[in-house]
Amino acid sequence: MTPIVQIRELTRVYQQGEIDVTALDNISLDIPDGDFVALMGPSGSGKSTLLHIMAGIDRPTRGSCVVRGVDVAKLSETELAEWRNHHIGFVFQTFNLIPVLTAFENVEMPLLLTGLTASERRAHVEAALELVGLKDRMHHQPRQLSGGQEQRVAIARALVTDPTLIVADEPTGNLDAKSATEVLNLLVALNRDAGKTIIMVTHDPKAAAHARRVLHLEKGELLKDEETPR
C-alpha cells in the first residue's frame, strides 16, 4: 500500500534579511495511512516547517511532498486552499477559535465551503462534537469554555470535513496537565478507532509517547525515527 504522505529530498530555505536559513535539509520520509506521528526537536529544528509543508500552508524550496498522490508544491494558492479544506484538519497550540462564534458555528466553519445543506452540516457538526464529548456545550462561545474544552472544539473543527490528515501544532502547549491528557487521549482514540492519520508537533516527550511513531529533527535534518512501544 502506498504511503499517504511521501516526502522526497525536501529542502526549505528561508531568507532572513541577508542570510539564508536552512530550515529543512534534504529530508525524505513516508507516512502510511492510519499512522500517528510525533515530530520532536528543539526550537529551530524545522519540525513546524515540516508540518506546515505537509499541511499546505508553506512551500518547499526543493524536493516534493506528495499527499495521497498530489504534489502539494505544484498547486496554486487557490487550489491549495480548496485542497486544505478537503484534506487537512488543523489543531493549533492557541486553539484559534473565532471568538464571536459559538462552538457549533466554529465547527461548522469549514463546512460552509462545501456544498452541504444546512441540515447535512448540522448532522456533521453534531457528530464531530459528540466525538469530542462536547455536544452539550455546542451553543457556548469560546470564552465560556475552559482551555481543554476549547482545544476539543478545535479538534472537532479539524475532524468535521473528514480530512486525509489531521495536523496538530503543539496541541497541548497551552493546557494544564489534566486537559493535556484528555486531548491526547482523544487524538489516540481518533487514530485507533476512527483510523485517522495524525501528525503532531510537540516538544513534550510525554505527549510524544502517545504517538505510534516519533521523528526527531535537529537543524533541519531527520535524526531518529522510532516506533513507540505500546
Binding site: 499541511a55 494558492e77 486552499a81
Partner: peptide, 16 residues
Amino acid sequence: MRELAVLKAIGFNGRQ
C-alpha cells in the same frame, strides 16, 4: 490577522 490566517488554513482561498 490571525483569524484570517486560520480561515485560510481551514480552506478559505484569497478571493473568499
